[in-house]
């Protein structure tokens, strides 16, 4: 039999192929290292600057003109208030939309057009959502600068992310499981509730928590709808005004006194810990409840 594969060429190429393999390994390692280094510097600066201000008083004091008395009580509690509105509103609307699009809507051009637009919305600058919130919730519905108005605006902002994540999770449930349920005479709703959702819930919750962490960190839409930065009281109902952590941090960083830079660093630290906590919950849910098929 005639041999078409020339062993000499293979031998000649071997070493350069292996070198190229090593080169790209190094390249990818360097890209990772770059990100890690920058992150490391950021952490170092924030921790050295802010750690001195973190004590019990920092959580118990309202904002103050004097850096040594300044605290994040209003902002911290305000963030929790915001989440109380954003979490249920965005999850219910988002998961509901995803279920409708994946399970009920006819698979036609119009549906794919809507799906495409939802993915696009996830990339719209947050300030645009702020303008939308200002027009609809603050002005048209006269909710003023309340927790409710801010919460609804933030819900709109994270809704596309939650919808897309939930769609992915629902789509990853094997179609064989739906067939098994339908073949036993189950209705669509029974199939969604008892088969699709239990299998999709880890993915939905992971996406949901990541979306909520985004809502915690956003400032722009809240500035647009006019949420105050200097607040020395706590909201009593969702119709009261309030402030949140990133707003408070933004306020501190824009002050002339250098001490306030350190207070801001302390605020950033609190927020980072909060975000790491939420993301850890997302990772935990993904690892422990994910079903493999």
């Amino acid at each position: 039999m005639q041999k078409l594969v020339d062993k000499e060429i293979i031998a000649k190429q071997m070493s350069s192929r292996i070198i190229r393999n090593q080169m790209f390994k190094g390249l990818f390692f360097l890209s990772t290292l770059f990100g890690l280094l920058v992150l490391g510097v950021l952490f170092y600066r924030i921790i050295t600057q802010g750690i001195g201000y973190i004590d019990l008083d920092f959580f118990q004091n309202f904002a103050s003109r004097r850096p040594e008395n300044a605290g994040i009580k209003a902002a911290f509690i305000g963030t929790i208030w915001l989440m109380v509105v954003v979490a249920p509103v965005s999850l219910i609307l988002g998961v509901g939309t995803a279920i409708y699009l994946e399970e009920y809507a006819k698979k036609n051009k119009f549906t794919s057009f809507i799906k495409l637009n939802i993915s696009n919305l996830a990339g719209v600058p947050s300030i645009v959502f702020g303008l939308l919130g200002l027009t609809i919730f603050v002005r048209a519905l006269a909710l003023e600068r309340s927790v409710l108005a801010a919460g609804l605006t933030m819900s709109l902002l994270v809704l596309p992310v939650i919808i897309v994540a939930s769609q992915e999770a629902i789509r990853s449930v094997p179609k064989e499981l739906r067939e098994a349920s339908f073949a036993m005479g189950a209705t669509k709703w029974q199939t969604v509730l008892k088969v699709v959702l239990p299998a999709a819930i880890p993915g939905i919750l992971t996406g949901g928590i990541l979306a909520l962490s985004r809502a915690i960190g956003e400032t722009a839409p809240l500035i647009v709808i006019g949420i105050p930065m200097f607040v020395a009281f706590l909201p009593k109902t969702i119709m009261d005004t309030f402030t949140v952590l990133p707003m408070q941090i933004y306020n501190w960083t824009s002050r002339p006194q250098t001490e306030f830079q350190d207070v801001a660093a302390a605020g950033i630290l609190v927020m980072l810990v909060l975000l790491i906590l939420m993301n850890s919950i997302a990772v935990f849910i993904r690892n422990h409840f994910q079903k493999r098929y």
Binding site: P174, E176, L177, E179, A180, S181, A183, V195, P198, A199, K291, Y293
Partner: peptide
């Protein structure tokens, strides 16, 4: 109905 691939629920 019984399907080609076993499809128990998780």
């Amino acid at each position: 109905m019984v399907f080609q691939k076993p499809n128990p629920f998780p």
